[in-house]
Simulated assay, not measured.
Amino acid sequence: WQTLVGGLLLHISWKLGWVEMNLCSRSEILSWLPASVLFVGIIYAGSRSLSRLPIPVFLTVHNAAEVITCGFQKFVQKEQISHLKVCSVLFLLAAAACLPLCDTQFDPNGYLWALIHLICVGAYKVFHKLWKPGSLSDLDQQYINYVFSVVLLASASHPAGDLFSALDFPFLYFYRFHSSCCASGLLGFFLMLHTVKLKSSTTSGQYAAWSFLAK
């Protein structure tokens, strides 16, 4: 729902001239598709995990994805990382690792999907760091993610059995459920748009500070 609504809003904004996008280069689009696959993995694994785990537990595991990016910078790119950041990342890892041990309602499938979500988030960030900037802007990348996720998830819903499972959802015919889904997509779209504009109008240090405060 969120990607469908977000994709439609971004497409309408593009056609009305409210945002600028450039999707003329097919090679650039194809080079970004691996990131779109990871984006779908983030969405699908995250939704599966959220259906089984409490939100605080899920967010704790989600934040531990910073371990992957930090480890990549430290051991692959050989970048200098401050001791403060290393300590904070280790605390995130320790918190996520201790959750299954302290969870009285331990759900192995929920944690498995959370782990897959964590890996996809970390891999997406690493790919974004390695990807050489070309003609695709942040909005272009997000638009490709939206379109790819809608097409892939819609086409895979029947083989994966999610289509028939959705028909058994107890709140499927409640207007509050549909309005909440639309509101989620709307808020996600505005958050993405604001993040892109903030990133383009501030320095990397200022953007990192705002991101830290947001988390």
Score class of each variant (00 low, 15 high):
Lys215Thr: 07
Cys102Glu: 05
Phe212Glu: 04
Gly71Gln: 02
Ser211Arg: 10
Ala154Lys: 08
Tyr44Leu: 15
Asn109Phe: 14
Leu163Ile: 03
Val76Thr: 07
Leu186Lys: 01
Lys125Ser: 01
Gln206Ala: 11
Ser27Val: 10
Met21Thr: 06
Leu153Ile: 14
Gln206Ile: 11
Leu53Val: 06
Ser36Arg: 04
Val126Gln: 03
His194Gln: 09
Trp1His: 09
Phe212Lys: 04
Asn63Val: 11
His11Asp: 05
Cys181Asp: 02
Cys181Pro: 04
Leu53Asp: 00
Lys215Pro: 01
Cys102Arg: 13
Ala64Tyr: 03
Ile43Trp: 03
Tyr146Ser: 08
Glu66Gly: 10
Asp168Pro: 04
His178Asn: 09
Tyr124Arg: 00
Ala123Ser: 14
Leu186Cys: 07
Lys215Ser: 10
Leu193Phe: 12
Ala154Ser: 15
Leu163Asn: 01
Cys87Val: 13
Asn145Ile: 07
Trp113Ile: 02
Val5Pro: 01
Ala35Gln: 08
Ala94Tyr: 12
Trp131Met: 13
Ile43Asp: 02
Trp32Cys: 08
Leu136Tyr: 00
Ala156Met: 15
Gly41Gln: 07
Leu93Lys: 08
Gln80Lys: 15
Cys182Met: 14
Leu153Val: 12
His83Met: 15
Ile43Phe: 06
His62Thr: 08
Ile81Tyr: 05
Trp210Val: 06
Trp131Pro: 01
Lys129Phe: 04
Cys98Asn: 10
Val67Ala: 09
Asn63Phe: 15
Leu84Cys: 11
Leu59Ser: 12
Arg48His: 14
Pro170Met: 06
Ala208Trp: 09
Gly71Ala: 05
Gly188Ile: 05
Val37Glu: 00
Ala166Glu: 11
Phe174Met: 08
Pro170Arg: 07
Gly161Val: 04
Ser155Phe: 14
Leu92Ala: 10
Ala97Gln: 12
Leu38Arg: 02
Leu136Val: 00
Leu33Trp: 08
Ser13Pro: 02
Gly185Ile: 05
Leu163Tyr: 12
Leu118Arg: 00
Val76Trp: 11
Ala64Glu: 03
Ala154Phe: 10
Gln105Arg: 13
Val40Ile: 12
Leu30Thr: 05
His83Phe: 13
Phe127Glu: 00
Gly122Ile: 04
His117Thr: 04
Phe39Asp: 00
Asp140Lys: 03
Ala96Asp: 09
Ala45Trp: 07
Leu53Tyr: 03
Ser36Asp: 07
Leu16Thr: 10
Tyr124Ala: 01
Asn109Trp: 14
Ser49Arg: 08
Ser31Leu: 08
Tyr111Met: 10
Val5Gln: 03
Ile43Val: 10
Gly46Ala: 08
Leu153Cys: 12
Glu28Tyr: 06
Trp14Glu: 02
Lys15Ile: 13
Phe177Lys: 01
Val19Glu: 04
Phe127Arg: 00
Leu59Tyr: 10
Phe72Leu: 01
Leu213Phe: 13
Phe106Pro: 00
Tyr44Ile: 13
Ser149Phe: 02
Thr3Asp: 09
His178Pro: 05
Leu53His: 02
Ile42Pro: 01
Leu186Trp: 10
Ala97Ile: 14
Ala156Phe: 11
Pro170Ala: 03
Leu4Asp: 02
Trp32Met: 13
Gln80His: 15
Ser36Trp: 08
Val89Phe: 00
Pro159His: 05
Ser149Val: 06
Cys24Lys: 14
Leu59Glu: 12
Ile119Cys: 10
Phe91Ala: 15
Cys120Phe: 05
Trp113Gly: 00
Ser149Tyr: 01
Pro56Ile: 11
Val76Gly: 03
Ser51Val: 06
Thr202Arg: 12
Phe171Pro: 00
Val40Ala: 09
